[in-house]
């Protein structure tokens, strides 16, 4: 394994973790807003606040990890993506700020539970994946172009691209699906029958759209980036495994059996698909300008970063274990029997 591969794998892994934990967070916000809209708020709010409030900052750090890490391992990305992403990334920042301030002002703070705020928070959960995911489309090439030696983003090409829009739709459906499956499990653990039923229904509703859009993207790629498409076809068997895992999740949810396993299968489904997608994207970070090799940092820095990563992981894993043991796997806490908030 070369240093380049280690670097990109670490980043891809953390991006994957962010996709999962952030999807839970984004989707939950949306379901919360939706149930407030249909006057069923009391069903979900508790569950959502018990799980999300203690962990959202950790979720956010996964995102920070990704963008700090990519500049560290692949500094040239700063030049191409930094220059072109000013507007989309700033919008994403504003949306993240809405979410962060909702936790700060509405759940920790003075409990400002104004409906408008709940809706904004919910809506930001859908708009965020929609504003972050176009970066994946851009990495396929054709949207970031050069004027002289300066890159710029061709908004017209981007906004008229079916590929971009299918990625946006996929990200939204995936967020809702991942979130619903997780919350079904969590609500079930909390012994909250009403919430479980509701979330189970949402999980089944969103399963179909999620898988259909995911398949759709592969076909969009055929026209947009044939090279990438053919590499995806080479990896068809990984996508097949991913599909089987998907069937497993839906089956368990449908049969109301073992929601924990259902969620694990779902993580497996996204993990396989996400990695197969990443591998087929190799070696490009941005078609056709940047590969992981020509944008890589120097060797001394790469080794230093990897050592720091291993040391950091040694600190991180036990802490995360503790966090999850206290808030995810602790029966009394999940059930809301004990409230120890400062």
């Amino acid at each position: 394994m070369t240093l380049e591969i280690i670097g990109v794998s670490v980043l891809w892994l953390f991006l994957f973790l962010y996709v999962i934990v952030a999807s839970i967070d984004f989707g939950a916000g949306f379901f919360n807003a939706y149930s407030a809209f249909t006057d069923k708020q009391h069903i979900l709010t508790n569950i959502i606040q018990r799980y999300l409030s203690p962990v959202w900052e950790v979720t956010n750090v996964f995102f920070v990890f990704f963008f700090v890490g990519i500049i560290g391992f692949f500094p040239q990305t700063a030049f191409y993506y930094g220059t072109t992403l000013l507007v989309p990334a700033s919008l994403a920042l504003i949306l993240l700020a809405i979410r962060g301030s909702y936790y700060a002002f509405a759940t920790y703070g003075a409990k400002i539970n104004h409906r408008g705020y709940i809706y904004m928070y919910g809506l930001s959960g859908l708009l965020l994946p929609a504003s972050l995911s176009p970066v994946l489309a851009m990495s396929e090439g054709g949207f970031i172009k050069m004027k002289g030696d300066q890159p710029y983003l061709d908004y017209w090409a981007l906004f008229t691209s079916p590929l971009m829009w299918s990625i946006v739709v996929l990200s939204i459906t995936a967020v809702l699906y991942i979130s619903a499956v997780f919350l079904t499990w969590y609500a079930n653990k909390a012994g909250d029958v009403k919430a479980t039923d509701l979330m189970r229904k949402y999980a089944l509703v969103w399963a179909g759209p999620a898988i259909v859009t995911a398949t759709g993207i592969i076909f969009e790629l055929r026209g947009h980036n044939p090279e990438h498409y053919s590499r995806i076809l080479d990896l068809w068997w990984v996508f097949a495994i991913s599909f089987l895992l998907f069937i497993g999740t839906v089956y368990l949810i449908w049969k109301k059996k073992n929601y924990g396993l259902a969620f694990v299968l779902l993580v497996g489904q996204f993990f396989t698909a996400f990695f197969a997608y990443g591998v087929s994207h190799y070696p490009y970070l941005l078609y056709p300008y940047l590969t992981i090799y020509d944008s890589f940092t120097n060797e001394a820095m790469a080794i230093a970063l990897i050592i720091a990563f291993i040391a950091g992981l040694g600190l991180l894993l036990p802490s995360l274990y503790l966090l999850f043991r206290l808030f995810l796997f602790d029966k009394d806490y999940v059930k809301g029997k004990s409230d120890y908030h400062a």
Binding site: V68, T297, L305, A308, A311, G312, L316, S319
Partner: peptide, 20 residues
């Protein structure tokens, strides 16, 4: 990049234990 990267782990550490 090294201290920037290490900072992220410090954030993790802080955020996790603050939640707890």
């Amino acid at each position: 990049a090294l201290p920037l990267f290490m900072e992220v782990f410090a954030f993790f550490f802080e955020a996790i234990f603050l939640g707890i």
